[in-house]
Structures are given as C-alpha cells and as structure tokens.
Amino acid sequence: MSDKVQSPVSDLTGAPLPTERTLRYRRNLAVQSWKFALFNARILRMVLRGRH
C-alpha cells in the first residue's frame, strides 16, 4: 500500500441521520402495511401509465 494514496473514503458527516422516531416508523407494522400498499399501487400505476 506504501506507494499509493490512502483510500479516499467519502465524508458523510453532512448526511442527515434518521431520528429515533423515523427508525421506529420504519419498523412499525401499521405504518409499513400502509407503505406496502402505496408502493404496490405506485408500481401498478407505472405499469399502466407506461406507454407500452
């Protein structure tokens, strides 16, 4: 590794971290069931809207 520059890892300290509440939402069964339905509806809408 000696003749090479140290690995240039990106600095992510400016990236937003989720709050405790957001993390809880990401696992909450009721919230996620709703998101699941929405996601599937969106995929279906894309399939139907796509001009093919």
Binding site: R26, R27, V31, Q32, F36, F39, N40, R49
Partner: peptide, 17 residues
C-alpha cells in the same frame, strides 16, 4: 409522483412478494 425512495420494512415485503 412516481419517482420515490422509501426505507423500511415495507420494501422488504415488496422484495419477497
């Protein structure tokens, strides 16, 4: 409307589905 990113358990269910 259709370009979105979500994080959470729901995505895992979608992948399984």
């Amino acid at each position: 409307d259709d370009t979105r990113g979500e994080l959470g358990l729901a995505g895992h269910w979608v992948k399984l589905l």
